[in-house]
Amino acid sequence: MWKLIRSRRLLLGLVGLAFMSLAPTLPAGAAKAPARVVSMNLCTDQLAMLLAAPGQLFSVSHLAADPGSSALAGEAARYRLNIGLAEEVFLMKPDLVLDGTFSTSPTASMLQRLGIRVEKFAPEASFDDVAENILRMGRLLGQEERAQEMVATLEKGLDDLASSAVPGLTVATYASNSYTTGKGSLSEAVIEAAGLTNLGSKLGIRGAGRLPLEILVLSLPDIVTNDTPTYEAPALAQENFVHPAYRAVLERAQTAPVPASNWICGGPFNLVAAAILQNAAKAAVQSGKHREK
């Protein structure tokens, strides 16, 4: 029981650290730092919101305000939202545009032709990638110090997770349309940071791929993530969550309610996802729901 309480406190601490606003100051060499930044990608949105000085970030993408996707949806209300149209972003007169490497790229190349500086960030597949992107964002925004502090917090969080890991348990991510994540995904990095094994990688899935319900049932993982998304309207993509076989899996395995927003993008909030997984692992051991192998 004590372990559970302690890890819950760890969780709260991590959340606090992740969202703690560090004294926002423009560093000495800030003359070159951009003053009007527009971000068009959910992941750059969140890193920019965490690192930018007040007034420096002008607009973020509309997804940043969607609580289903963004870990900082509340924060995003403070910025103008864009939908990534070239015309819209150009008229904002940004001196730096942030974008992902695979989203809205025609917009980004048009903005570049119009003479606007565009910096693209690749999606992260590991915590090294996350740290690298944080540091790069820090350099671009002239906020190196805050970025370094954030990376240090991240590394400390990862060490804490590693020291309190429960070994030998398997976790399956199971999303709409029966999709799961495998090797080379950020989810995998988070799962490993929590000291767990990802079922998707065991099955040889790379990136994201379909996990047929039948295979989920037969490989019965110790933990299943069940952040069943709630949309305004139903779709067949979510019917897998009400399938009797899936309900039976939920009865047999420990569930971990990891919000999708905590591991779609890289950032300090990934630690929250890992902590939820680790709590689920501890609960699985206590309730005897993990399978003896």
Binding site: S176, N177, S178, P212, L213, Y231, E232, A233, P234, A235, L236, A237, Q238, E239, N240, H243, P244, A245
Partner: peptide
Amino acid sequence: LSPNPFAATEILFWMLGSLTDRSMT
């Protein structure tokens, strides 16, 4: 028109059909 982001791609199911993961229901 559905606010569900998955709905638009499901026209494939309705035009071509599938029996994947249907249940006794």
